[in-house]
Amino acid sequence: MEFYTKPGDYDAINYIPHTESHGTKELWRTFWILLGITVLDFGIYFAMSPSMFKNIIFIFFGLVKAYYIVGAFMHMKSEKINLALVILVPTVFIIGLIMGLLYEGHALTYVK
C-alpha cells in the first residue's frame, strides 16, 4: 500500500490512497448501456399501454441505471466491501419507507 504522504505534508493526516487509471473502456461501455436503457425507456413508453407491469419495468430499468452509475461512475465496485456495505445497507430504510407507504397508504384515500 502506497501513500502520497511526506513528512510535513498536510495530507499526511488524510491518507490519500494511491490511485491508478483503469482506462476509459469500461466508462464508455457504461455510457452506451445507460444511453441504450434510456432509449428503451422511450420506446416502451409509447409501445405499451399503462399498466402495473409497465411501471415495474420502468422501476427495474431505473435500478439497473443506478447500479451502473454507482458501480462504474462512482467506482463503488473498486471500493472495499466494508465501505460499500456502510453506504448501501442503510438504503434498506428507503425500502422500509416504500413498504410502509404501500401497506398503510391506502388509508389516505379514506381521509380525503
Partner: peptide, 12 residues
Amino acid sequence: GRSPFNVSYGKL
C-alpha cells in the same frame, strides 16, 4: 492512524 476503508476522510 490508518484508514480501515482504504479511503480518505473527505471521500468517506
